[in-house]
Simulated scan of single mutants.
Amino acid sequence: MSEHPNEVPATFVPPSVWRNPWHFIAFGFGAGTLPKAPGTWGSLVALPFIPLWQLLPSWGYWLMLGVSMLFGFWLCGKVADDLRVHDHEGIVWDEIVGMWITLWLVPPGWYWLLVGFAVFRFFDILKPWPIRWIDRHVHGGAGIMLDDVLAGVFAWVAMQVIVWVAA
């Protein structure tokens, strides 16, 4: 039984995704409405942005990450509250930001995008400590975002090692 009696099922795709711009963004521009593995689809949505972010100086990319995370705390919390679901599986803004973190300071090229995608999904799905603890114990927009931000940080460290070894 849910702790919120008016909570809707997390698998329900709300029609507001197509009408409300905040819901549309939180649902990864619609990717979070796909029936299987919305987090994977959300992670893929992040990839086309990476070549644009890589045009920024490293501090500009870092600044964009900070703004995206802060925006995500608000956005994910707002949309979860609107939908009356703690962490609707269709909310994938957190995966998008996690992917952007993973690929900060990684060389350009499709190969690195694919490796980064695989490494991020590994950490996001496996949820090693403390990611799993955060996922279970931190609530609201911060809880929705932080597990994927931390998965992105773990994946970023792994990517930096992979890039260093490959160089």
Rank of each mutant, 00 (worst) to 15 (best):
G42D: 10
E89F: 01
F24C: 14
V79Y: 06
P130C: 14
I101T: 01
S68C: 15
I96L: 12
I50C: 02
L63A: 15
P128D: 13
P48E: 13
F73C: 12
D81F: 07
V106E: 09
V115W: 10
L63S: 09
L113Q: 10
L105E: 13
L126K: 06
V79A: 11
A118N: 00
L63H: 00
V119C: 04
S43I: 01
F122L: 13
A118Y: 00
L75E: 13
G116W: 05
Q54T: 00
H86Y: 06
W100C: 05
G77Q: 08
G28N: 04
W41D: 03
P130D: 15
S58T: 06
P35S: 07
V119G: 02
E95G: 08
G90E: 11
L52Y: 10
W133E: 13
F24M: 14
F49G: 10
A46N: 01
W74E: 09
K78T: 14
A46Y: 00
L65V: 01
V97Q: 02
V119R: 02
G28T: 10
W93N: 09
F122P: 00
G60S: 07
L52H: 03
W62F: 14
D124L: 04
P35K: 03
S43C: 02
M64V: 14
R121Q: 08
Y61A: 05
L103K: 05
W129C: 05
F24L: 15
M99Y: 00
L56D: 09
V92Q: 08
E95H: 10
W62I: 12
W41Y: 15
G32I: 09
D87L: 07
I25C: 12
M69N: 04
G72C: 13
S58G: 01
E95M: 08
I131Q: 09
L83Y: 07
P57F: 03
F49T: 10
L34R: 07
I50Y: 03
A80S: 15
G28E: 11
P48T: 08
P35H: 05
S58L: 05
E95C: 09
W112F: 07
K127N: 09
L44S: 01
V85Y: 02
P48C: 11
M99D: 03
I125D: 07
I91Q: 06
I101S: 00
D82E: 15
A118C: 14
G60Q: 04
A118T: 06
F122I: 02
P107A: 14
F123T: 04
W59E: 14
V67Q: 02
L70S: 11
F27T: 06
R132E: 14
M69I: 15
S58I: 03
F122R: 00
D81H: 15
P108M: 11
A37G: 01
W59Y: 13
I50D: 04
T33F: 11
I50M: 08
F73I: 15
G72K: 11
G32H: 08
V115R: 05
L83R: 00
L63K: 00
P128E: 12
V45A: 11
Y111G: 07
